[in-house]
Design a protein around this nucleic acid. Structure first.
Lengths: 336, 336
DNA sequence: AATTTTTATGATAGCGCTGTCATGTTTTTA
DNA sequence: TAAAAACATGACAGCGCTATCATAAAAATT
């Protein structure tokens, strides 16, 4: 009793069944023109009865495309990646492509990328932060002519497709929101320096403060690394050096959650004693207590768009897509 | 200035470079025997200078394997999937295979699975809950001879490889842990009925209660769906019907987080007034306040093992791997 | 020393498709 | 009405590998 693979139907099987040539079947599955409607219908029906589906391996060999989209991440965890993946899988579904996940931990070592690219021959690769800003990686992909779509990159690059938000403006707006609520002494938790957006968000904060005539003292700032523990530590630093703050802007939600955690344990009530806001609208933002006021970027949509940019490479002018963001008001801010 | 794909080297290029036949190069890359060491060395060196990497598409067409492992999930979010993915990507890396993520939302509709399987020809697919217990899906994969590894399945099936934990025993132990802490009236939040483990965990809870001579009244139980809001709702139900509980066992961490959220807002202190425990050791468990005592299963290891089961199909006796769990003690339980 | 077995290598035929070209047939335009 | 253009189809080569077979040398066995 061997567990034998029931061998799938091939295009010639379909061709035979429909009484046409192999090539005509191929035409149908590639949406080429010059196939009459009745033949097309017969072929589609034959394909259905035979449960036929073209084999990507064969298509990849013969044609140019692999039907594989690479998603390169430095870490597969986190809500950001999860949301992106939802958008991507969705888009892949709609286009008959497939999502291949590769983890690239070392941003300077292209050898893994080289291996993956050479063996899979991706139709394109998606690069979220921080990979989208890794020079070595980008250089390699450029040299090898691999179509790239960057998501959430910190710096614009003319020759790569990119979907992004105006990080600086978003941070500016959030800071402004706090100012509008009457806050004057606003702290800021800086993000991971490895992520290009960290500096942009900080700049947005600083600019908003300056525009409102508010001073940013050094003690208003604390360094974090986009994760929970670093948010906790940063909050402690802030509370020690600047107990007079009335609000803290953590540049992502995980750090905000860490900060709130520290504050609760330290007896500082949020938002009564101190307002806290974040960035990203991470799932944690709506699960914490109080729920977190934050900046939402449409990651799923951005991911879908990134996929589209790879699959239909457009004009050089049209490969940069800016998305707009919203401030999601929840419970962590109090007007003063 | 055309962005021309620098065409990757082929096996014949390597063969020429190393002065051997194509087939000998192939042998080296497939770890076949009968290649002398010096030739092997020359070939490997040639491959390195040419940056050669065999194309999976060609290998897939010619040989039997696609070098693609399918990860079928019903939803790509959540910490469970993220952890699994880490283990899988890791294992793929080590074996030269690639992880393809497919989202299957409808557990009864195999059409999407059929399309994916027919077009990619996965070397095997990994099925986490709840897909690992979906009869239609399993039947289809069985018929088509697709190697399967189930992760965290609720019911044993002899003809499918499986990695799992003893859900019932784990829940039993956790309940027993609470009993050992002096709790007698222990509530339970049931998980999503679509997941087979939900019933098992409930049984474990009931058995432990019975074994300790404790009664489980109906009002001790509330239905949840493995997510945050349902945990919140369930806690409310519990507090209304059974305010005399001293502990609540939520059958996963997200629900536990929801429960704690509700409780805090309702003025019930955790763990002072009520102890709460969860299941899974989700990332939320260490980010909430208080941190959550929970059950940890080694998902990453399980995923790696699942991958191994697919890549080296063993004896029929050896395809079931049980993993053991630990109780992670944190801050959400008080002895009474 | 003669035979078998093991080791080492390569030639050749596809795997299941798509690209290119050849060959008609119809429609449009001059 | 003839020439050109658009439409429709199929034959055939070949993408970059692996499987199968053939071949020959070296090692192990009679």
């Amino acid at each position: 009793m061997t567990k034998s693979l029931k061998k799938p139907a091939t295009m010639s099987d379909v061709a035979k069944e429909a009484g046409v040539s192999l090539k005509t079947v191929s035409r149908v599955f590639n949406n080429e023109k010059y196939v009459t409607e009745d033949k097309k219908a017969r072929i589609l029906e034959a394909a259905k009865t035979l449960n036929f589906q073209p084999a990507v391996a064969a298509r990849g060999l013969a044609g140019g495309r692999s039907f594989m989209i690479g998603l390169f991440v430095d870490d597969a965890s986190g809500d950001y990646v999860a949301k992106m993946m939802r958008g991507l899988v969705n888009a892949c579904d709609a286009t008959g492509t497939h999502l291949v996940v590769e983890v690239i931990r070392d941003l300077d070592d292209v050898s893994k990328v080289q291996r993956a690219v050479a063996s899979v021959r991706f139709d394109g690769v998606i690069l979220p932060p921080p990979l989208c800003d890794a020079p070595a990686l980008l250089a390699f992909l450029r040299e090898n002519g691999v179509p790239v779509a960057r998501i959430g990159a910190g710096q614009a690059l003319e020759d790569f497709a990119s979907v992004y938000i105006d990080e600086e403006l978003a941070a500016y707006k959030m800071t402004d929101y706090l100012i509008a609520k009457g806050h004057k002494k606003i702290g800021f938790i800086i993000g991971d320096p490895e992520h290009a957006c960290s500096a942009l968000r900080e700049t947005g904060y600083r600019r908003a403060m300056a525009a409102a005539g508010l001073t940013v003292e050094d003690r208003f700032l604390a360094q974090g690394y986009f994760n929970f523990p670093s948010g906790r530590d940063a909050a402690q630093t802030l509370m020690q050096g600047a107990p007079d703050l009335t609000a803290v802007f953590a540049s992502n939600d995980e750090m905000a959650a860490g900060a709130v955690d520290y504050l609760s344990n330290a007896g500082v009530r949020v938002p009564d004693d101190l307002s806290v806001v974040g960035f990203d609208d991470d799932i944690a933002a709506s699960m914490m207590s109080p729920t977190l006021t934050t900046v939402r970027q449409p990651i799923e949509d951005m991911a879908r768009q990134a996929h589209a940019l790879i699959c239909n490479p457009g004009d050089y002018q049209k490969i940069q897509h800016r998305f707009s963001v919203d401030i999601v008001e929840r419970q962590s801010v109090r007007a003063v």
